[in-house]
Amino acid sequence: MADKPRIKLPKEAAKGEVIQIKTLVSHVMESGQRKDAQGKTVPRKIINKFACEFNGKPVFSCALEPAISANPYIQFDAKVDEAGTFKFSWTDDDGTVITAEEKVALKA
């Protein structure tokens, strides 16, 4: 899981503009349904929660289930009223949290 999450969003936005944010994080998203060669069930290991905050205020979050594809791709929108920082976090079943930050400036 050493890969950095990939996030795509505009570097600057007009005040009040709704921007689109695309995120992709590398993760196996093991569903807990598959069996290995010995017939044993491969234990579940997924990202179960994704959250995005802007200047500390929640923007979008989602609870994920095993029915989410490997390397979860999540696209959503956010309204930008001020310059600031988007914080992203992906929470794993085992408790590790992958985080990332992106800054957005206001268009002059």
């Binding site: 709704v18 921007i19 569903s31 802007f54 205020k57 929640p58 923007v59 979008f60 989602c62 095993p66 029915a67 989410i68 594809s69 979860p72 791709y73 999540i74 696209q75 959503f76 929108d77 956010a78 309204k79």
Partner: peptide, 13 residues
């Protein structure tokens, strides 16, 4: 309300 739009895309199994 900060989402601006109630739109999202994901990939599912």
């Amino acid at each position: 309300p900060l989402s601006g739009k109630a739109e999202a895309s994901i990939r599912i199994r």
